[in-house]
Design a protein around this nucleic acid. Structure first.
Lengths: 341, 341
DNA sequence: TGCTGGAGTGTAAACGTTTACAATCCGTCG
DNA sequence: CGACGGATTGTAAACGTTTACACTCCAGCA
């Protein structure tokens, strides 16, 4: 830990610190001869620039923050992998904030940016108390914020975003169940505050309506995006006096819980009850039975979001704030079958 | 984004910048009256300290880095949750580096510390090319590095660490299989470079030896710590001319793949083949059948590791470098039964 | 020979904090 | 009343880097 600064290098090379700095940051501005001298000195001293000083001077940290509901969900870890790949390519490091653990307010997010701790923010979670503060800040200057996975409430609709068409995808999932002959279809959504989940519920309702199928009271239950929550919700559905023959879960994590609970109740999947998931996490193909679900290009979403954020940071402002819609696809496995006659 | 600095606050409050700084960092050194004046000015201006400048001045980032093999593994996300909880309590943010994605060398790690990008490092992955460079740096000054989950190669044994006794736990797992009557027991370990996995293999071998049970050639296969890898390894085991009646997997992720592959081969678990996991990730109780495994206090490990790192950072040096051993426990579910007669 | 201009280098300011030290204030005590 | 001392505040330096500006040097040209 030589604690060696640029001065020491300059002294050793017999040049000024400005020259050393130039050698590192814009070598073309410096003679071959000096460059070599300096490089030698750098090696000799074991010098490496103090990034703190650099960050301070340049006014940027090369750090971005990702806000997401739960790092535990394999879907998000897949998105994160994409983000990280892109970040690495662009020279950024990534810090993660989990909203589940500590509800982060819009204030905190704003503070994060103002105090320059991070150069930009990726929101993978919709924050419901999102509002005035950050918005007003936003109106003053274009914030380096990009939204991923979620559609976002209308007031923030002008933040750039990357996601699938959740409504359409959920509709497609429901239609698939209908096409296999189901008429009594229940749904487990996530948390009331999650817009993403809300959109999927919307798609489900739209599909049912279009097919002129009724949704009975009690057929839609909250699963809190967790296995335990989904099991509880499944129990409620199974106890329903007019029990659904198919259950559409707003994500695979919950579908896994649902699957387990249905079987625990002594029912067969898909013989007695069909189960449909959403996300196509990596466990979806090893459940028993393997899960029919909607696939999202998670890693691609991550990469795109990150690149979008980079553009935003670099350009300072971006004319195009259109949401970027990526394709989803139906993944048919074995957890859905026609209902028992 | 008012770009307001401490100067502006000082001007508005009619005091010097030093006083403003003191109000924020050590309010007890300042009169009630001045403090109030300054606080008003802070509110009025919407000032928040530039953390970049603070980091620079104080020589610390309040950022720590976690190096782990895979963020996707639920076990590590559980550890991460513990780390993050503790980090938040101590005012640190966390950045994650995944070794799988990009093999990080000891050099890079050293550079990270020297260039002050992070205040400390938590290693949840053993790095095999770990060695001289970082070691020599270490000998010069006590590095703020703490190791979690892994036992570490002997040359680095003096780095503080927090983990279960992997050898003993694996031995216990194997003994459990033996106690249920199994004699033909195979194992799927992770990656050859992973010491953690190595230790578990050691435990398995020790238990077999102690019970005077032979380990046939081909009963121990590499699963690469992934579902796909484990499925491949399982196939090899099942094709063995003298096929094991029980398979011990070095972690649950692989056990899930193993479980699936055994069933895909038309065999019953635990009827035909028993499967044993390690870690007790949250999916372990919803597999079919639910997985018998070894539980680790993942979140607790995370917290302890983080607190240990904090002490190391704050004190600069720590006399006690003993590994901290946390307890594991056998979790009996339904994937293990006596072998068919 | 003297000028011009461009390339290379050095000087010094600046970034926003923290903090050692000096200065001031004011109450208390001799 | 004056001196002392503790509490509060101000002054200014320092942290390590980048960079605008000024300077030097030298080649090329008139």
């Amino acid at each position: 830990m030589p604690e060696v600064s640029i001065k020491e290098v300059a002294r050793l090379a017999g040049v000024s610190i400005a020259t050393v700095s130039r050698c590192i940051n814009s070598p073309e501005k410096v003679t071959e001869r000096t460059r070599i001298k300096v490089e030698e000195a750098i090696v000799r001293t074991g010098y490496s620039p103090n990034t703190l000083a650099q960050s301070f001077r340049r006014g940027r940290t090369n750090l971005i923050m990702v806000v997401l509901p739960s790092v535990g969900d394999p879907f998000f870890t897949a998105v994160m992998r994409g983000i990280r790949t892109a970040a690495r390519a662009k020279g950024y490091s990534v810090v993660i904030e989990e909203t589940q653990l500590n509800t982060m307010t819009a204030d905190e997010i704003g503070a994060m940016l103002v105090s320059k701790q991070t150069d930009g923010i990726i929101l993978l979670a919709s924050m419901s108390p999102f509002g005035t503060e950050i918005l007003s800040a936003k109106s003053r200057r274009r914030l380096p914020i990009v939204v991923g996975c979620e559609t976002i409430s209308s007031e923030l609709a002008d933040l750039p975003s990357v996601h699938i068409d959740n409504v359409a995808a959920a509709k497609e999932a429901t239609n698939y169940l209908i096409s296999r002959g189901h008429e009594r279809i229940g749904m487990i959504y996530g948390q009331a505050t999650s817009l993403l989940t809300k959109d999927r519920e919307l798609g489900y309702r739209a599909a049912m309506k279009q097919a002129k199928l009724p949704i009975r009271k009690g057929w839609v239950a909250e699963g809190q995006l967790t296995i335990a929550g989904a099991r509880q919700a499944t129990r409620e559905l199974l106890n329903h006096s007019y029990c659904p023959t198919a259950i559409f879960c707003a994500n695979d994590e919950m579908a896994i819980g649902c699957l387990h609970e249905v079987k625990a109740a002594g029912l067969a999947v898909p013989g007695d009850v069909s189960v449909m998931g959403f996300d196509d996490i990596r466990y979806a193909e090893v459940t028993d039975p393997p899960l029919t679900t909607i696939g999202q290009p998670a890693e691609e979403i991550g990469e795109r979001v990150m690149y979008r954020l980079c553009r935003r940071i670099e350009e300072g402002q971006e004319s195009n704030n259109e949401p970027e819609i990526v394709p989803h696809k139906l993944v048919v496995r074995q957890s859905v079958a026609p209902p028992r006659a």
